[in-house]
Simulated scan of single mutants.
Amino acid sequence: MEIYAIGYFLFYFFALISVDKNSKASTNKVIFSVSFFILLIFCALRGIIDRDHQNYLTIYGYIVHGDGYLIEPSYYFFSLLSDFLTSGPILLFVLYAIIGLGFKFYTFRTYSIFPVISVLVYYSNYYFLHEMTQIRIGVSIAIAIIAINNWLNGNKKFFFILLFISCLFHYSALIFLIIPFMPKRRINAKEMAAYAFVILISYIMFILHFGFATAFSYIPIGYVQEKFAIYSQKAEMGEVQAINVFSVMQLIKIINIILMYFFVAKKHDDSKFFNLMLRFYIFSTICWVVFFDIPVFAVRLSDLFGISEIFILPYLLYVSKNKYIGVFLLTLFTGMVFYINIFHNILLEPYVTFFN
């Protein structure tokens, strides 16, 4: 696990250099490029160290042997291409690493107010979750972010084209069809009060053990009743990992939302992208509680909307006129999240390459 910790301290060091007032733009560009290649090599050469790797190998075997398997078209294509060119699955993971990291770093460079800070936030959480584990959604959500920015800039045609491509990598990108119905303005007091009310009611529902699975089980449609009754029973029997609605990461998100709304949002209300990403960050927090009794929904939706933290959290540097207060908050957040992911949740096993 030491190599992951070394990586964190390296990117933390890069982040400190990038926010120094004497740091040159050319230096930051070099740091950004070096970060990309380090993460790319680290990701592309990994062996079986994550929870999904073996499943991907199994699915690869089904595809190349002509057995049917329900999965997105891109995985079929890359599996067959890897088998044709290398007679093995190695190229499959290399391609996903190149495409996923390539698009992610493009979004950091183009949409983040502090790209190097975004790399640190990304490394502490979504790098391990996406590029090192959930490789399909890692690519999908990066393309979706580009699609979203196209919508905000009025390029509606490209939004739908890119979102379609995103769905070829993971069908869950369909959730971003809500974008045309989302406001672009700054979150006002009434809207924030509504979000706070939803969060409060969600926690009350949790305390009362009345969640969506329970509510949906009363819908007078046999299949729906059965499906959600099963979800509820599995959660109660402990057959699925329960959602901890009071987890450290959830509480950190709530604190960040408060800081963003009261100390940052007014200063950047002209940024449509910031306004939307802040809404996504709030949605991520809400989904984690609302779907507490349907863990698969809670985790998936919270993670999809939570990608916004990569673009939102660099704004912590604007919480105070003294930017080092923001640096301290970023250190606290990224350090705790990194520790939880690697040493508590153990998202990854000790690093090995596919050569081992």
Rank of each mutant, 00 (worst) to 15 (best):
F78M: 08
S33Y: 07
L70Q: 14
S112C: 12
L304A: 12
I31W: 01
P220M: 01
W288D: 15
A25D: 15
I243K: 08
F263V: 02
R109S: 15
L39Y: 02
K157A: 13
N155G: 04
L313S: 04
V94Q: 06
T334V: 07
A97H: 00
N55P: 04
A189C: 07
R136Q: 01
S82W: 03
K323D: 07
K157Q: 13
L81P: 05
I48Q: 06
F263G: 03
C167H: 08
K234S: 02
G66T: 03
P89K: 01
I252T: 09
Y231H: 05
K21G: 14
E236I: 13
L208Y: 10
I98S: 06
V327Y: 03
E72D: 13
V327Q: 05
F164W: 06
K29R: 11
F343W: 04
L301E: 03
V64W: 06
H268A: 07
F297H: 11
R185P: 07
Q54C: 00
E309V: 09
D52G: 02
G154A: 05
Y75F: 15
K24N: 12
F159M: 03
T107G: 10
S35G: 03
I201P: 11
F108N: 09
D293Y: 11
F263K: 13
M277V: 12
A213R: 06
S140G: 15
Y195A: 13
K24I: 14
A298Q: 05
L16Y: 10
F311H: 02
A173V: 09
F210H: 06
H53L: 04
T214W: 15
R300W: 04
Y126I: 11
